[in-house]
Write a protein that binds this DNA or RNA. Structure first.
Lengths: 349, 349
DNA sequence: GGCTAGATTTGGATCGTTCTAACTTGCGCA
DNA sequence: TGCGCAAGTTAGAACGATCCAAATCTAGCC
């Protein structure tokens, strides 16, 4: 191929047609594997395609056919391993379906999210998977995405007033049930003084997890002391710094359900610094099962959300929506699974 | 906006033009902020754009202008945090330049790489950033990418025979210099018996790192025993299993430069199992500075490659290439930086 | 040979935008 | 009055594919 590439002008249908004495229409049919063209013609055209090194211009085709061959994926933070896995899962399915993934990362900034959405939408994706930035507004998002592009929300809800006719699909994690499982696990081990540690209550996922914790405590008839709820930024560093607050009053907790793994790791670090030994005299659970969770010492009991599988699932849901735009909006809550490791010990006798 | 959206037909220039009694050309000029249109006309058109909820069709524009507004990014494994960071860096710069990122992940399979490249290239990206899968072939890659799309290789070389007129840009890490720094650091601490542990010599990055180690040893006049080179798969598990080989003969090493962090963590695990205490009676260095490195016990001395910055750099290089397609091919070797942590101790007295 | 059914092929319009070259105006000035 | 010029505006042909309806080419059959 490429034998006489003019270098600069791309090879088009017209060149191929001219090159083997058929019409553009015929070449187009060959490209799309139509049964209408004669075997010999097809062979001749295919040879010419190879000879000239033709590459299909899908944008032109999409323009004419009024179709799309891409899916946009906007995540709040691609560098976060959780979302990287998610993106990998999305791309896997999207690619297998013959679509291409348009990527955007928002760094948790609603302003950047608006810009990214605006830019992506101009490329006419067939659908959009969005893991909203913290604090992004439903009305604004809908305004730039428009009603024509199917939208699937992952992991978080949109903030602000919901417009009346808001219809999009949702794939969320079962935060509440997950935190409840973790709490029940600690209760079953014999703990009664269990804290809920980390995160901020203005994040919806944190509220849901906290609610799950409270539900489990209530169901077990366990009292909850006010100082057992310690808020902090969802980072290892801030978590470690906030540990003293847990022991500021009596009764001190003997275990903590953490907002997520980062916080849990920070908590364990802070505990060690105070002379405690997590996994021996204090039980800890996390959420997410990030890579470090299994490697920490002690290894962290946590909830696995299987982000890659979630990515595949999200892509699948969106593809189904493309097939049937009229179907009712779906709301899928994916279960999470408790993995018990050494960090969740029974209370000291 | 969106007041009377026909739902199904998208709003085009023609609709706007008709809606406010000007020609398509004028609307087009307004969209592109041309100074040619009269202030009042512009205002009228802009109002109509908002009223009808117009969204720009960049694909159509690209078709006519014969330009592109996307950059393709193909990585061998997006779920790997190193490449996720890299991708985030790429997207940051690509997005800021008004382009969109087309994403593809190959799962280290040259076959999938071919498929992904073929699919992406049909969308006519302005350029392509590729971190090749292990074992992907130069001739094949060039055949599907074509000569028209600028190519930037990251992190790895392409295998196979290089075609005569192979011109692409390259951004690589300074593997050799990095390993040399690590080795010199151990030498400076007083070690003389230093092993090179892990990786396979058929990977180019491993060969480069090994060469850096040898150069440092040679420069210091330190002898190198044959059993100090232990090959293993670049995984924690296999590394831990191969530890005994280091001590199979005398003199036993007192330190090891490892192929990467995964291997280094495995080595430390294996050492502990054998009754050694890494960071006290055996010094270890890694490569990559993965997230776990700082959290391991002891924290791992390693080389940071700053993948996010590399992503930004790669995107920048490609954008420069788009601006000046004729410039000579560039080959940038990004330096890596040694971070000293507790795993690299001086030899026991 | 004329006629028809089926198999192939094709010209020209079209998708939504931009580009080119030309077309209006209005105004100042000889 | 007529002319040139600048400022605004626009018709119509692209870009590279697909769709549609119509054209062409077989055979087969009476």
């Amino acid at each position: 191929m490429d034998t006489n590439a003019p270098l600069g002008r791309k090879v088009t249908l017209r060149d191929i047609a001219a090159g083997c004495g058929v019409s553009r229409a015929t070449v187009s049919l060959v490209l799309r594997g139509s049964p209408l063209v004669h075997k010999d013609t097809r062979a001749r055209v295919e040879a010419e395609l190879r000879r000239q090194g033709y590459v299909y211009n899908r944008a032109a085709a999409n323009l004419r056919r009024r179709t799309s061959s891409s899916i946009a994926l906007v995540v709040n933070e691609l560098a976060n391993p959780f979302f990287a896995e998610f993106a990998a899962g999305v791309d896997e399915v999207v690619g297998a379906a013959g679509f291409v993934t348009l990527l955007g990362s928002t760094s948790e900034s609603p302003r950047r999210e608006q810009a990214v959405l605006g830019s992506l939408i101009e490329h006419g994706p067939g659908g959009l998977i969005l893991s909203p930035a913290e604090g992004s507004d439903a009305v604004q998002v809908l305004a730039t995405v428009g009603a024509a592009t199917p939208l699937l929300l992952f992991n978080r809800e949109l903030g602000g007033e919901l417009p009346e006719a808001a219809h999009w699909d949702v794939l969320a994690l079962d935060n509440q049930q997950g935190a409840r499982q973790a709490t029940e696990h600690l209760l079953a081990l014999g703990h009664r003084h269990i804290a809920f540690f980390g995160g901020h209550d203005d994040s919806s996922s944190c509220r849901q997890r906290h609610a799950g914790y409270l539900a489990a405590m209530r169901a077990a008839g366990a009292a909850v002391a006010a100082h057992w709820r310690v808020e902090c930024a969802p980072t290892r560093l801030d978590a470690a710094a906030c540990v003293p607050a847990l022991f500021a009053a009596v009764p001190a907790p003997t275990a903590a359900v953490c907002y997520n793994d980062a916080v849990a790791l920070g908590l364990m670090q802070g505990l060690t610094r105070q002379g405690h030994t997590p996994g021996r005299d204090f039980a800890v659970t996390g959420f997410d099962d990030i890579a470090e969770a299994a490697l920490a010492s002690p290894p962290l009991t946590t909830l696995v959300a299987a982000p890659r599988a979630r990515g595949r699932q999200a892509a699948q849901m969106l593809l189904e929506r493309l097939r049937d735009p009229g179907a009712a909006a779906r709301r899928v809550i994916a279960p999470v699974q408790l993995v018990v490791r050494a960090s969740s010990c029974p209370p000291l006798a």
